[in-house]
């Protein structure tokens, strides 16, 4: 499935970013929606929890604030999955890969180890994103492009935290 010979060169990130910028503008104009992703994870968590603990979830303030329902953003996140899937199939870059190359070169090819790191990182990232009231989509793109103070503050902190963790994991390498 993965053959370096037939692999297409990636799209220029300036071109891709500019097209994504036009897409944001179109979305705000056409649907009144700015990009965001992390609230969807709250809705999914609320939905999953409510299947076993319905009464408890119904009384939790945060799940009352972000009700477990299908909305624009949840479809947007599903769309990213779908778009990436189709694009990678057509572009010959779909690759079933349990451990990313960079991670494997540093820590080995154990899928279990990588899975645990990804799981723990995911917990931390989402807890932080909800506390910050947004992720790199909601704050990093939508917040900064509206020149909101919260967007710039959060985006700077995302990178500071990320740089620290990358330094801890990879050192100078």
């Amino acid at each position: 499935m993965f053959d370096p010979q037939t692999r297409r060169k990636p799209m220029n990130p300036y071109l891709g970013g500019a097209l994504a910028g036009l897409l944001v503008v179109l979305s705000v104009y056409g649907a009144g929606k700015f990009f965001g992703a992390s609230t969807t994870f709250v809705r999914v968590a609320g939905y999953l929890e409510s299947t076993v603990l319905a009464e408890r979830v119904a009384a939790m303030p945060y799940f009352l604030k972000e009700l477990p329902k299908l909305d624009w953003q949840m479809m947007f996140v599903a769309g990213i999955f779908l778009g990436a899937f189709l694009s990678s199939l057509l572009g010959n870059s779909f690759r079933l890969l349990p451990v990313p190359d960079t991670f494997a070169a540093r820590f080995g090819r154990s899928a279990g180890q990588r899975g645990i790191v990804a799981f723990l990182g995911g917990i931390l990232a989402m807890f932080g994103a909800r506390l910050a009231d947004g992720c790199p989509s909601g704050h990093g793109l939508s917040g900064t492009l509206q020149l909101s103070v919260s967007g710039f503050v959060a985006l700077a902190c995302f990178f500071v935290g990320g740089l620290i963790m990358a330094k801890l994991l990879y050192g100078g390498r």
């Binding site: 932080g128 790199p136 935290g161």
Partner: peptide, 22 residues
């Protein structure tokens, strides 16, 4: 929230290597 949450997100992001959308 923005600063503490942002830093926690960043530490997690460095581990996981994906953000929620990606």
């Amino acid at each position: 929230g923005n600063i503490i949450g942002g830093l926690i997100f960043g530490l997690g992001w460095g581990l996981v290597g994906y953000c929620p959308g990606t």
